Computed example of a mutant assay.
Amino acid sequence: MICPIHPGKKINVICIEPHGCQKKLCSECQYYHGGDTKQYLPFQRVLNKLKLKSEEFQLYKQQLKEKFTFPDLIKQIDYQLIGVWKDLRESFQKINEGIEDQDIIYLNLMNSGLSPSEYSYSDLEILINILQTDELNNWNKSKSHYFNQSQQATLMLKSEVEKLQQFITEQFQGVLAYKKQQEYDGFLDAKSKSTKTKCQIIYTKFNEIQYKCNGEILQTIIIYDLLNKPQIIKNLDVLKHVHWKGELGNDYKKVGLWTAEWMDTKQIVSCGSYSQNGMKYGYWIEMVKDYFQEMNLLEVGEYVNNLRQGTWKYCYNFEYMYQF
């Protein structure tokens, strides 16, 4: 491949430093580019390193598959639920069919139109019991009992299914959110909340979401929490202009000091610390719910295990105003 900057010179190396150079360099480009020669790799070296990275990636992928078998577990749970539901449905059906069959036996005997002499001895015995005893009343009583128990079982099943649905909805909000685009009303003017507009939370990749409003992407974030649904930020100025900085722990929970800046002015609008378990603790400065940058009204107080404690104060530009 010929260098587009130096005609007649062949591109023979790739710059692997993570900066904004042209990457593909000829010998003359290298001279003007400068820097450590170790940052230049011939094409074959690049391919060899990529092959090694690919092998490491494939090995780790296989190790994860062996360690985490959740796709197989999901299938197993699916089969279990389908199997239990099939058995239950068939059992209810057999109970109803058994009751219906016995009703038909009684009705056929009573409405056959045959002479008593034409009945078998066993059928005649049943007919005599119908005429002379409480055979039908006892059967109707038994039917009522079976239907009552079946209804109780059905209502119990319905209640447990609703509990399961509620449990899944509450505990797996983040997972369930992947299925759909969420819409909500945001507001552009935090002072009056008068300018409402439709906003969307859209999953663009399996772990990336975008907050959009009127076709504009206000923020794109990487998510690591599959159990909780994404936070809905209705204040669109905050969504668009506030940027958080901090570190993530090994399990991708926030740890240590985190600060939020208003991107245009670099002004701190929130800050505080997270424990190793991702819980807020100690003193925090936070934006008020309907924050707007011109006023810069903040709240100051203490967190213990992610819960607010004691007296919190309003402050304006870090000057205390009053308590609440």
Rank of each mutant, 00 (worst) to 15 (best):
Y281E: 07
I5H: 07
P18W: 03
N96A: 12
Q80I: 12
N108Y: 05
Y106G: 00
K180G: 03
D189Q: 04
K253P: 01
G282F: 03
M279F: 07
F187P: 03
L107G: 04
I105M: 10
E100M: 11
V175W: 07
G20C: 11
L52R: 11
Y32P: 01
K313D: 09
Y291P: 01
P116N: 15
S120D: 07
L47Y: 12
K266P: 04
F92D: 07
I201T: 00
L81E: 10
Y274P: 00
M1E: 09
V161N: 14
S192G: 11
M321N: 14
K141S: 15
T204Q: 07
L157I: 06
W244V: 01
Y314G: 01
I2A: 09
L176N: 10
T259N: 03
K163S: 06
P71T: 03
E247M: 09
M1C: 08
I233K: 01
Y320S: 03
F318N: 05
S275A: 03
F292Y: 14
Q173W: 03
Y146A: 06
F167M: 05
W244D: 02
V161F: 13
V242D: 01
E162S: 11
K23Y: 13
V238P: 00
K10E: 12
P42K: 10
T197Q: 06
I209E: 01
Q102D: 11
K198D: 08
F172E: 07
H33Y: 10
Y316K: 14
E216I: 12
L176Q: 10
Y184V: 03
L239I: 07
E55T: 08
Q276L: 05
Q149A: 08
K196H: 12
V175C: 09
Q323G: 05
E294C: 09
R45F: 15
G278E: 06
L307K: 15
S54F: 08
G98Q: 11
Q276G: 05
Y119I: 01
K163N: 11
D237C: 12
M263T: 14
Q30G: 07
E90K: 08
V255L: 05
K38E: 13
P71I: 01
S122R: 13
L131N: 15
H145W: 15
L226Y: 08
L81H: 09
F57M: 11
G174R: 00
T133W: 05
A153V: 05
L131V: 09
L25S: 00
L50N: 12
Q323R: 15
G20S: 14
T220V: 08
S91I: 04
L64F: 11
I105C: 06
N296S: 10
I222W: 09
Y322N: 09
Y203R: 06
Q63L: 09
Q76L: 14
I126W: 09
E247Q: 12
L127S: 05
Y224P: 00
C213L: 07
S112R: 10
G215K: 03
L248G: 00
I128M: 15
Y106M: 08
F206C: 09
E170T: 14
D36R: 09
D101G: 06
D36M: 13
Y314T: 02
I5L: 13
I285W: 04
K65Q: 12
F172V: 10
L41M: 15
K9M: 06
K10G: 05
M287H: 01
T169K: 14
S273V: 04
D78T: 10
V161D: 14
E216M: 11
I268K: 02
P18M: 11
N235I: 02
D237G: 09
Q151L: 07
